[in-house]
Nucleic acid binder design. Sequence first.
DNA 1: TTGAAAGCGCTAACAT
DNA 2: ATGTTAGCGCTTTCAA
Lengths: 339, 339
Amino acid sequence: MAGIEEVAKLAGVSTATVSRALSGRGHVSPGSKAKVQDAAARLGYVVSSNASSLASGRTRNIGVVVPFLNRWFFSSVLEGAQQALLRRGYDLTLYNLSGDGQERSSVFEHFLLRQRVDAVIAVSLELTEHEVARLHELGKPLVGVGGPIPGVRTLTIDDVAVARLATEHLIGLGHRRIAHIGGDLEFDVDFHLPTNRRLGYEGALRDAGIEPDPRLFAPADFTIRGGYHATKQLLGAPHDRPTAIFAASDEMAIGSILAARDLGLVVPRDVSIVGIDDHDLSDFFGLTTVAQFPRLQGEQAVDILMEALEPPADAASAPAATQLPHELRVRSSTARPPE
Amino acid sequence: MAGIEEVAKLAGVSTATVSRALSGRGHVSPGSKAKVQDAAARLGYVVSSNASSLASGRTRNIGVVVPFLNRWFFSSVLEGAQQALLRRGYDLTLYNLSGDGQERSSVFEHFLLRQRVDAVIAVSLELTEHEVARLHELGKPLVGVGGPIPGVRTLTIDDVAVARLATEHLIGLGHRRIAHIGGDLEFDVDFHLPTNRRLGYEGALRDAGIEPDPRLFAPADFTIRGGYHATKQLLGAPHDRPTAIFAASDEMAIGSILAARDLGLVVPRDVSIVGIDDHDLSDFFGLTTVAQFPRLQGEQAVDILMEALEPPADAASAPAATQLPHELRVRSSTARPPE
DNA sequence: TTGAAAGCGCTAACAT
DNA sequence: ATGTTAGCGCTTTCAA
């Protein structure tokens, strides 16, 4: 590995100039800059991130903390963040908390404190005040994605509005008996998404003059299997079977479709089903859904951090509360209710 | 942030002793060790990874390169590796190559060279000689998972044997017309998994005195959708419809199950279906499959690297060619063929 | 615009 | 078993 000194020698300048030319900070004459870049390329020189970090205090590395890896939402956010970071020359260090609970404390008490990252993105994780405080003490910017963290800039879709939209779509088609599959309480602990989606659902119903019926609510665990079983319960009712189901996630909605089929019901003739996400599989299943865009959320989280880390010389920073987009995608799982 | 000097002062020893006590290398009296640990805890001291890396040449960070994030196999390997690393106090820096092609070269020409990682795990990626050479030049240990890399220690299940086992299961049940859904050529470029699985399938057939029928092979792209469409083709044939399908992955096999249902066929009465993986969803679909254990593969990759990075003082290293386990899991998607 | 030189915070000889 | 000290390879004042 060639070092900065060799580059300096080959380019005929000092190491300071090499550093300036390669990092972009400080002024260097175009001539020197070219010579340095040329020399660096010839020697295959790449700055040592450790030496650079130690000297400058900046690591060019972002920590991303996720609760799971094997779920569509998390891996999509991660993908978006990764791509945005790579483009900017940043590395991404991953912390997955899905093991036993103690991983969480070791990550926050140890890993994130050893100066390896400049900032942290927390995905769908409700951090404790203590965890947030630790990070702030170190002056590490922090942004949340998909879950509210008190006192921290967070990127989330408007869960209430999204659920309302999905429900209104069903109401607009003429449905009145609309069931809802939401999260069980366990999921509400770390982020209030299930509650918010339920609120949106109930709000839409009430606005249409329909009183929410608690018997039309079934909790599940955000998986296909969970949605399947919840739907069997809902559609197996001997009387007043719902004509439509709004599931709080596409995976659960897909479970609903499969359950309906197994009961001999035809979707959407006998029952309409709508989800939230626009999961990879939703198009295949013809699922009507409200799309959210997790890749974009990952990218935006990076944008926000970059603004804190490398404040643009020019001007006004982006608005503090970016509203994330969502979009109704009507496919073939919803239709007018049976006569 | 407290520094090593403050810890040394509080503990009443030198910085060298603090370093030794905290890192475990070198001898420290139990007394000093306790004092140091106590002082460090009181000050909330955590070593600066940069300073430590710069001085020692070791980063305690492993780079993991994956081609995709949102597929079961990759995220599972990643999860296993992450957990094994965390346990050992290592960080994991992630490089996802799924963007445009040029990410790949920037990762190998730049990111991996800046001394941020001690070693690299490449998942299902056939590295070029040049890429391998770059890494070797730097003395970075490299291990592959799920794909063969010439000249590099690689962890893979025996694809031929696994496919053979799946096929033999069907033959054992009495099937003779067994179709195979494999990868299309595109997938063979980066790792020969599709070819090997097809070889295992054909080998099992021949051993049973059945000549493989090319009309019973259909290529797909390893997704549910791909398996679905391939199966429609296979089962839609007016004559000599296969009585069983062996899909080279569980996702494709799940697509097969759905396609069979849509054709009005009952699984396994009319057609048996078997996959490879033991995907998260397989149990739900009652899919018979040959399980592989990607989490374990991730963990083992870490074990191998650790041996290279921190050779155990005691003794013999693990055998060079670990054979990865696989296991037939019979569920409800396979049965004797119809009379 | 450029160079000289002082660290960044730790580890690893080496010496004791 | 422990302390002293010279770097690790850069960045960044400061001075020119």
